[in-house]
Amino acid sequence: MSLNTSRRDERWVCRRRADFALRNWPDGSVLFDEANGQLQRLTPAAGGMMALFLDTPEWTSCTLAQRIFGEIPAAEDIELVANALASFQSLSLIERLPD
């Protein structure tokens, strides 16, 4: 499976790290947004990704997939991460940086 190169290299940033508090459990995570008091329940994988953003604010789909899945992530893995990042964006947790 091939992945659109531009999608691999999309850059994402979490500018509001200070607003977020994250609690992880093996069965899932909960994210608190101090800016608006909202709570989000996240899958374990999404919780893991969010934890990485709270640690390091900027990632591409590819670097994030590498960190999660290993040195050379498969195209499917990168696609999975890219979809998760798009979901995070729709929740206003992260922003896509201009190319």
Binding site: R23, W25, D27, G28, S29, V30, L39, R41, L42
Partner: peptide, 11 residues
């Protein structure tokens, strides 16, 4: 029950 679910319902 998943703790993350339990948290949401508690909240």
């Amino acid at each position: 029950r998943a703790k993350s679910e339990g948290f949401m319902q508690l909240a």
